[in-house]
């Protein structure tokens, strides 16, 4: 049961990150990996303005401020940095966005040379729901991520604003001819990015979870690329489902690493060989998510996934 709950919590975080990347791709036509920099930046900023003695209200106010700041940063970078390179190929834009990511990380290292420990009012508390012991941070993660992701799905599918955004994502020229402004769409994407990336960063780095620490944020953010690959960086629904699938297989293989090792040694010995190699946590964390992504690319037919972005 704990594997399932942890998977759901981790999957919902992957979902937040992957949905931001897919939305960015739909509008800009390239994978904006620079977004991962915002995810890393958020917990550092929150850690700088709060301490373990901060009240929950101050903590929430700081989080809201950081979301606003990162939305603004995303908007400025999209307009200031990406506009002059709008005529370059998607590959070049990805390179620029990776540069943005590493410049952000360098700034974080300069400003917080000794690192930062994010303390939240929640701490490392546990709760018990239906006789299941659950980390409070996992329960909050699940609750917040589900509300944000379902809220986003609702906005996109059931509001005029969301419909206009999806129309723009599919065909910018036609959408412009019907009065949908690119400035307005990019502003919306910046707001979604600010909110979702900040939340993902803060929840990933919160103490109490097995992913504790701001340094592990980038590592887990990179794993969120796996559902993006499975969804061919375009289909939001497949992105949503695959986030949970990747998290479940990752947590399940991590929890059963001994059985996987036995199976691995069994297969090797079937070939009359022996090995001293033992699969560790990196197998579950690094190999499994991307193996799933590559397998999905091979076995899922392209026609099942709508690749309608303008890349």
């Amino acid at each position: 049961m704990s594997v399932l709950v942890t998977s759901l919590a981790l999957g919902s975080l992957y979902c937040l990150i992957a949905v931001v990347l897919v939305l960015h791709f739909k509008v800009s036509g390239f994978l904006n990996i620079g977004v991962l920099g915002y995810i890393a930046l958020a917990p550092y900023l929150v850690a700088s303005f709060t301490s373990e003695h901060s009240s929950i209200f101050i903590f929430l106010a700081v989080c809201l401020g950081i979301m606003f700041f990162i939305s603004l940063l995303s908007f400025v970078i999209d307009f200031g940095l990406f506009k002059p390179i709008s005529r370059l190929s998607s590959a070049m834009k990805v390179i620029v966005s990776i540069s943005v990511l590493f410049i952000t990380l360098t700034f974080i290292d300069i400003i917080w040379p000794s690192g930062a420990n994010l303390e939240t009012p929640v701490g490392t508390k546990s709760i018990s729901i239906f006789s299941i012991d659950l980390l409070l941070i996992d329960a909050i993660t699940l609750f917040v991520a589900f509300i944000v992701v379902f809220g986003l799905f609702f906005i996109l599918s059931k509001t005029i604003m969301g419909n206009r955004l999806l129309a723009f994502a599919q065909d910018q020229q036609t959408a412009r001819a019907y009065g949908v402004s690119p400035l307005y769409v990019k502003f919306l994407i910046s707001v979604f990015t600010g909110v979702m990336a900040s939340l993902a960063g803060i929840l990933l780095a919160s103490p109490g979870s097995p992913r504790v620490g701001v340094t592990s944020v980038i590592f887990y953010s990179l794993i969120a690329l796996s559902p993006v690959i499975i969804a061919r960086h375009s289909d939001l629904l497949i992105c949503f489902i695959s986030s949970f699938l990747v998290a479940f297989v990752q947590i399940f293989s991590s929890a059963n690493i001994n059985s996987i090792n036995e199976g691995f040694h069994g297969i090797v010995s079937n070939f009359g060989l022996s090995t001293a190699i033992t699969l560790g946590p990196t197998f579950a964390d690094r190999f499994v998510p991307f193996a799933i992504a590559l397998l999905a690319l091979i076995i899922i037919p392209s026609r099942w996934i709508r690749d309608d972005a303008n890349g």
């Binding site: 509001t159 005029i160 604003m161 969301g162 419909n163 129309a167 599919q170 707001v191 709508r306």
Partner: peptide, 25 residues
Amino acid sequence: FEDLSIVENVMIGSPPSRGDGIVSS
């Protein structure tokens, strides 16, 4: 627009209105 239903496709043509903004949405 394949992410939208037929009626939503038609609605995209509506003139800009109060319902478009983030707050009203």
